[in-house]
Write a protein that binds this DNA or RNA. Structure first.
Length: 265
DNA sequence: ATGGCAGGTTATACCTGA
């Protein structure tokens, strides 16, 4: 049975439960990975989400900020989480799917406004987080088997991942130092960009559009911050990938659109 | 056009996002 996996920075799971229901109805992902749930585990709307069919849930949330969740219609095997940068924040969880795929859900720090780690602690945190991710997959034992890495990585690596490469070179999310760090993470895990296997790198592709634009759709000043990567053994199972841009236009939407991939058996 | 918006909080102004 094929498996559909979605990743979505939902920007508060409680305020957008209705949109999650609509996503479940219209796209019917088997597994949904959320970021920025913005809720502690005791207040997580587990029953409402179970009623959508996602009875298997692995969550790690905190008050106000961050927070990640893996919601699944399929049973989850071994689950876990890593405390990157030893800050105790909720930016990563993982779970094993019935097909054996180890699924990692990340919310990489945004990094603040100033792209200089000496001047901006948030940017330093972002780079450190990425270095720790690269170190994690640098060990051959951690590269074994079929793995998938999804989430809001808060970096748009390609020139076609932003509305203007030139104008964003000094804007956090598209600076060369961030892209180098992300490339190192990719290389360490031998990761394959699943979405760009289907939507060629020559084509502009975004997953995030600012709330501040008067007309986000017309201006289309987007960035591709949300990603789905797979390890080489899993790349052969990919059957499709897309960004659900229309979701960005739903009433009271998140500023991020969901990204989905389909896997064959 | 360096503006503009949105969510959360021991809220009613300030932090975060990117």
């Amino acid at each position: 049975m094929p498996v559909r996996i979605a990743t979505w920075n939902i920007n508060s799971v409680r305020i957008r439960l209705g949109l999650l229901a609509r996503l479940a109805d219209e796209a019917s992902p088997d597994v949904v990975c959320l970021q920025e749930t913005k809720v502690t585990d005791d207040l997580f709307p587990a029953e409402e989400i179970a009623a959508l069919g996602y009875t298997h849930q692995h969550i790690a949330g905190q008050k106000g900020y961050n927070g990640v969740a893996i919601l699944s219609r399929l049973p989850l095997g071994e689950t876990g989480r890593e405390d990157w940068c030893a800050k105790g924040d909720c930016r990563h969880i993982q779970a094993t799917l019935p097909n054996g795929v180890v699924l990692h859900n990340f919310y990489v720090p945004a990094g603040g406004d100033i792209p200089d780690p000496a001047e901006n602690d948030k940017f330093a945190h972002k780079l450190q987080f990425l270095r720790e991710m690269a170190d994690w997959w640098d060990k051959p034992a951690r590269r074994r088997g079929a793995q998938m890495l999804v989430g809001d990585l808060n970096i748009a690596p390609l020139e076609t991942d932003v509305w203007s490469h030139k104008q964003l070179l000094k804007v956090v999310s598209h600076t060369p130092v961030e892209v180098e760090h992300l490339d190192r993470v990719m290389a360490s895990g031998r990761w394959v960009d699943a979405v760009r296997r289907f939507i060629p790198p020559e084509e502009n592709l975004y997953t995030w559009w600012s709330y501040r634009a008067r007309d986000w759709d017309a201006a289309d000043k987007g960035r591709r911050l949300d990603h789905i990567w797979v390890t080489p053994p899993l790349a052969e199972s990919l059957r499709g990938a897309s960004v659900l841009r229309a979701v960005r236009g739903w009433e009271k939407s998140s500023d991020h659109a969901p990204v989905i991939v389909d896997l064959a058996d």
